[in-house]
Design a protein around this nucleic acid. Structure first.
Lengths: 258, 258
DNA sequence: CAGTGGTCTAGACCACAGA
DNA sequence: CTGTGGTCTAGACCACTGA
C-alpha cells in the first residue's frame, strides 16, 4: 500500500499487510482493518494521510474491492478515516480516542492500567417486581439476581453499580464477582451482550452513596442506566450506575454516514 | 416479506415494501432499511418478531442478497435487530430508543416537541490561543470565532454552550444563531460535520453558570466536550457544554459486532 | 475530462445451530 | 442432516470532484 502525505505526493512505503492470512486468523476484512487501525493509532499513518485508492489497493492485496471497502468502512465507522467521493480517503485530524464499546467498567479500568477491585455490597436472589419485569421484559415473579457493588481503582472508589439480572445464577459468588467483574462472569456462563441501550446523566449524591464514594452529600455524580441484550434479543442485565465524575467519564465517537 | 411471531409459525402479511423505487429515492438498501426501521419503531414488527431469511427475501424484493444484507445490517447497527448464524434474525426485545446521532441540542429539542430558544451571551472574533490551536489542529494566531450561548426550551434554561470555531464567519449574526442553532447555520455555509469525538462527564455548577441555568451553586451539571470534524478531516468546531441534568440526558445505543 | 468513492449484481463457499 | 447467516469474488454502472 502507498500513502500520500498531507502535502501531496510523498509516498510512504508499507509492510503493513505482509502477514495477511487466508485461513485461520479471522476474516480478511478484519485483518486489514486491524492493521490499518493500529497504524493510525500509533502514528505510522498521521492525521491527514491519504490512503491509496480502493481499486489498486484491492489488486495489490489480491482481494476483491468489496472486501477492502469493508475494511475501510470499519475505520470510517470508528471515526478514524474520512471518505469523499471523487476525491479519496484520508486519516481524520485530531487526537484519536478510544470509543465507547459494549464493555464493562472493569475492563475499562484494566485497559487503562488501573487495578480494579470490587466490594460486593449485596448479592440477593429474589422474584421480579413489576418494575424489574418491565425493564427486563420478563414476567412478574420470575427469579432475578440483584447486585450492588462498589468498584474502586488503585484504592480510590470510582462507582456504585446496581444491577438486576433475570435468572438466579446459582453458582455466582461474591468472590467471583470481585475477581472478574460481572461481564466476564456472565461470559464464562456463555452469556454475551450484543446490544445495550444506555442513558447518561447526572444527579446529586445521596447520603449512603456519598459515604461509599468518599465524596460529600450533594456533590455531582455521573450516572448511567443500561439495559443489555444478548444475541437472541432477550434482556440479560439492567444496571443503574453512579460514577465519581472526577475519576471517570464517557468517551463517544459519533459518525454521520452521508 | 413474511414475519413469524415470537411463538413460532404465525405469518404476518406485508405491504412494507410496496413502493421501493429504483430511481431517485436514494439507495435501495436505505429505502428498505428505513421502512423496516419505521415498522419496528411504530410496533408493526413487535419485539421478538422473526424476520424472513435473507435469500428468499432478496428474491421477493427482486434485489441481490448483498443489498438486503446491507439494509439489515443498518438496523443491527442501530440495535433494532439481532442476527444469529444458523438461526435467523429477530427484532430485539426492550423499548427502542432514539440513538445519539451527530446532532445538535437544538435539533434534539425540536424533535421532542420542545420550542428551543437561544440567548447569545458572547459572539467574538479573535486569534487562536495555544490551547485552541491544539484542540482545533490549527496554528496559533489563526482567526477563530468564540461563542457562548444559553439554550432554553419552553422557557426553561437547559444548557450553556461554549464553542470555538476555526475561521471568522463574517456573516454570522446573533439573530441567525438564535433562530437556527449553530449546526444549521454552518450547514447553510456548506459546512457539515462527519465525525465527532465526545467526552461526557459531570461537575458542580460554578457561580455564573448556576445563575444562568437557574440552579444553585454547586448543584450537579452534566457536561459534554466535543470536537467535530468535516468530510476533509479538518476540525470544524470545539464545544464545552453544560446541561441541567434534570432537563437533559444522553441516550446511546451500543452494538457489539460478533 | 479522468479519477474517485457509492451502489448493485449473481453467484460461490463456509461456519454454525438445531433437529 | 438442513437451513441459517458470514464471507468473498469479479465484475458493472453511476454520482461526484476537481482539473
Amino acid at each position: 500500500m502507498q500513502f500520500v502525505a498531507p502535502g501531496g505526493d510523498e509516498f510512504v512505503p508499507d509492510d503493513l499487510f505482509a502477514d495477511l492470512n487466508r485461513e485461520g486468523n479471522g476474516p480478511i476484512y478484519r485483518q486489514v482493518a486491524d492493521r490499518l487501525e493500529a497504524a493510525i493509532r500509533d502514528g505510522r499513518l498521521p492525521a491527514g494521510t491519504r490512503i491509496e485508492n480502493e481499486v489498486p489497493l484491492a489488486q495489490r492485496l489480491a482481494i476483491s474491492r468489496p472486501t477492502i471497502r469493508r475494511a475501510i468502512q470499519e475505520l470510517v465507522d470508528l471515526g478514524l478515516l474520512v471518505r469523499r467521493r471523487g476525491v479519496g480517503t484520508q486519516v481524520v485530524q485530531g487526537r484519536v480516542s478510544r470509543p465507547v464499546l459494549l464493555t464493562s467498567l472493569f475492563d475499562d479500568l484494566e485497559r487503562s492500567g488501573k487495578h480494579p477491585t470490587t466490594r460486593v455490597l449485596r448479592l440477593e436472589r429474589g422474584l421480579a417486581t413489576a418494575a424489574e419485569a418491565e425493564t427486563l421484559t420478563i414476567e412478574v415473579g420470575e427469579p432475578v439476581l440483584r447486585l450492588s457493588r462498589l468498584r474502586s481503582a488503585d484504592g480510590v472508589p470510582i462507582a456504585i453499580l446496581d444491577n438486576v439480572l433475570p435468572g438466579a445464577y446459582p453458582g455466582l459468588t461474591e468472590d467471583e464477582l470481585g475477581e472478574r467483574g460481572l461481564y466476564r462472569a456472565l461470559g464464562a456462563r456463555g452469556i454475551h451482550m450484543r446490544v445495550a441501550q444506555q442513558r447518561i446523566g447526572a444527579r446529586a449524591a445521596a447520603g449512603s452513596e456519598a459515604t461509599l464514594l468518599e465524596v460529600s452529600v450533594g456533590s455531582p455524580l455521573l450516572t448511567m442506566e443500561r439495559t443489555a441484550f444478548d444475541a437472541t434479543g432477550k434482556a440479560v442485565e439492567h444496571g443503574q450506575h453512579g460514577y465519581r465524575p472526577d475519576r471517570y467519564f464517557f468517551e463517544v465517537t459519533v459518525v454521520d454516514r452521508p
